[in-house]
Design a protein around this nucleic acid. Structure first.
Lengths: 296, 296
DNA sequence: TTCATTGTCAAAATTATACTGACAATAAGT
DNA sequence: ACTTATTGTCAGTATAATTTTGACAATGAA
C-alpha cells in the first residue's frame, strides 16, 4: 500500500481522537498507545497532506483552519468505521439483515417455503431471499449465504452441518401393482418398471438385519426433477424411491403403498452448506436451527 | 493500536476495491499491491469481524449478505477518505476555506482591515477571521493561521516571512514645538518630553552616514497602545517615534512635522508567522502576497 | 486434452509501528 | 522566583505488521 489513501486513515483516526481528547496524552491513553506514537501519527499525516493541522504548544492545542475542516471529515469517518463494525456485531447478535438461501426446487417447495413463512413471521427484520435451483455450481456466483444440499459438499472453502436425515421408501400406486403384480420378494423386482431419479444412478442398496441386498433399477422413465418423479409414481408409471416427505402424504391418502418396508434404503442426508462465519450471524443460525428442528 | 477500529480501515478499503474491481487481481493492480496482500488483507478483515464477506471460488466472487451490507459502509468511507484528502488538495490549489489572522490592533486597523476588504472582494470563497490583539501568547490557543507581528518570532515550531519594512520617524506637532522650542541638534533632545511606546524601551539609536547616535527618551507619558501614542503626539504632548503609516498622513496634513529627517531609525520589521505548511494553502499564500505587495 | 488465469499459501524480506526513557517548554502552586 | 508536575517531541531500539516472491491447486476457455 504505497501512497494510497489507506495510509492516511490511521492517522485520521488518531488525529480526530487528539482533537476530541484535547491533548495528545489523553488521546494516547484512550487509544491504548503511547504518547510518542500519537505524536508520530499526526505528524506523519500532516507531512503527507503537506499542511499542518494542529497548532501545538507544550500546553495547548488548536486547530488550523485546514485542520478544522479536515477534522470534521475525520470525525465522520471515525464514526462510520465504528458503525460498520457495530453493524456486523449486530448481525451476530440480533436477527437482522438479509439471508439468501439456495435449495433444490422440490425440497424447497415442500420444506423450506413453509418454514420460511414461519421464520419471516417470527423474525420480521430479516430480509429473506429463497433461491430454488437444482444447480449447485452457481452457489458462489449468486451470493448464497446458506445452501441446502443432499450429501455433504466436499468443498474445503465451505463449512457444512447436517440438517436432517430423511428415510427413503420404495413406493408404487395400487393401480400399478394391481396391473403388474405385487412383488413378494426382491427377486421379482426386476420384472417391474422403475421411475429413476437421474442424479442417483440406478443401483440400489437395501439393508435388512445388517445384511445388504443390491438391486438394479430397470426402467425407461427417467427424470432429473423430483416433483416429476412423484407425479409419475402417483400416476402409476412404476416403482419409485421416494423420500419420506413425498411418500408420507401419499401413504396416508392411499395413493401410494410402500413395498418391502422391512428393508431400509440409505437415507437422504440433508446438509446446510455456508461460508465460514455465517453460523455466527444470528439470522443464519436461527434458520439453521429452525431447519434442524422441523425436519421435512 | 492494539485492536481498535483503525486496524480494520485498511482492510475495508481493500475489500471495497476488490468488490469494485470484481476480482482480487484487478483490485491488487489498481491498489498497486500484490495479489497476495490483497487476499491477506481481506482475510484479515473477515477474521477480525468473525464473518466471511466474500464467497470465493477461483474464478468467481460474490458477496455474502453480511458482505453486501458491509460493502456499502466501506464504499462510503473510501469515498469520504478520498474526499477529505481532496479537500486539502483543494485548499492548496484554490482560494477556498477559512483563514484566521491575528494582528496588533492599531496596525490591523490601519493596514489589514482595508486589505482584508479587498481580499474578500477578490476571493469571496475564503472565510476571513481577523483577530485584533496585542497579546502574542494566545496565538496557538486561538487557532490562528497567520499572525502579523513586528520582529521575527523566535519560535522553532512556527515559520515566518518578512512582510514589510516600515521606516520610523521622530515626530512632533508644530504647536508643541513652538511651545518647547524646535531642537536644532540631538543634544537638545533631552530637554523634551517623549511619548514612549511601552514595548520598545526608552533607548533610541539613530544612524547617519553609517554612524550611530544613541539617545535616551525621557518623559512621563507611556502607553502600550499605538493608537493612543499617535493621539498623544497629535495633541502636542511631546515627541514620538511613529511608524511611517501613522506619520505620513499627519505630515501631509501638517498636523505633525518630522525632526532630524537625515537621521534614520531602525525600521519596524513586520513578519507573518504561521504553522508549517500554511504557506502551501492558497488562501494564506494569497494573503501573504497581498500584504507584501501593499505595505502599510 | 492443454493453456492461461485465478486466489491462496508459506517463508523471507522489508517496512511500519510501538515502546522506552530521555528532553525542553510550559503552567500551576507555593 | 522557585519548585513540581505535565506536556509534546525526539532518538534509539524492539516488535509487529505488511509485503514480496515463488509456488500451488482449482478453474474455465480454447
Amino acid at each position: 500500500m504505497k501512497d494510497s489513501i489507506a495510509s492516511e486513515l490511521r492517522g485520521m483516526l488518531v488525529f480526530a481522537r487528539v482533537i476530541d481528547s484535547g491533548n495528545f496524552t489523553r488521546a494516547a491513553k484512550t487509544l491504548g498507545i503511547s504518547r510518542a506514537v500519537t505524536s508520530y501519527q499526526v505528524k506523519q499525516l500532516e507531512k503527507r497532506l503537506g499542511v499542518q493541522l494542529i497548532n501545538r504548544s507544550t500546553r495547548a492545542l488548536s486547530l488550523t483552519s485546514a485542520g478544522k475542516l479536515y477534522y470534521d471529515k475525520c470525525k465522520v469517518i471515525a464514526e462510520q468505521a465504528e458503525s460498520a463494525h457495530q453493524m456486523i456485531e449486530n448481525l451476530k447478535a440480533d436477527a437482522v439483515g438479509r439471508l439468501s438461501i439456495s435449495c433444490p426446487v422440490h425440497l424447497g417447495l415442500q420444506w423450506v417455503v413453509p418454514l420460511a413463512t414461519a421464520y419471516r413471521r417470527r423474525y420480521p427484520q430479516v430480509e429473506l431471499e429463497l433461491n430454488l435451483s437444482e444447480s449447485i455450481s452457481n452457489l458462489v456466483q449468486d451470493g448464497i449465504d446458506l445452501a441446502i444440499r443432499s450429501g455433504p459438499l466436499a468443498d474445503s472453502e465451505l463449512r457444512s452441518t447436517k440438517l436432517a436425515t430423511v428415510s427413503r421408501h420404495i413406493c408404487a400406486s395400487p393401480d400399478y401393482l394391481n396391473l403388474r403384480g405385487w412383488p413378494q420378494s426382491l427377486n421379482e423386482l426386476d420384472k417391474h418398471e422403475w421411475i429413476v431419479y437421474h442424479r442417483l444412478g440406478n443401483q440400489l442398496t437395501l439393508t435388512r438385519d445388517d445384511k445388504d441386498y443390491s438391486i438394479k433399477m430397470t426402467g425407461t422413465l427417467r427424470t432429473n426433477n423430483a416433483a416429476a418423479r412423484l407425479q409419475f409414481a402417483l400416476s402409476g408409471m412404476g416403482l419409485a424411491v421416494l423420500p419420506h416427505y413425498d411418500a408420507a402424504k401419499a401413504f396416508n391418502s392411499g395413493q401410494l403403498v410402500e413395498l418391502f418396508p422391512d428393508y431400509h434404503l440409505p437415507p437422504l442426508e440433508l446438509y446446510a452448506v455456508f461460508p465460514d462465519g455465517i453460523e455466527k450471524v444470528k439470522a443464519s443460525r436461527l434458520m439453521i436451527d429452525m431447519l434442524k428442528n422441523s425436519p421435512p
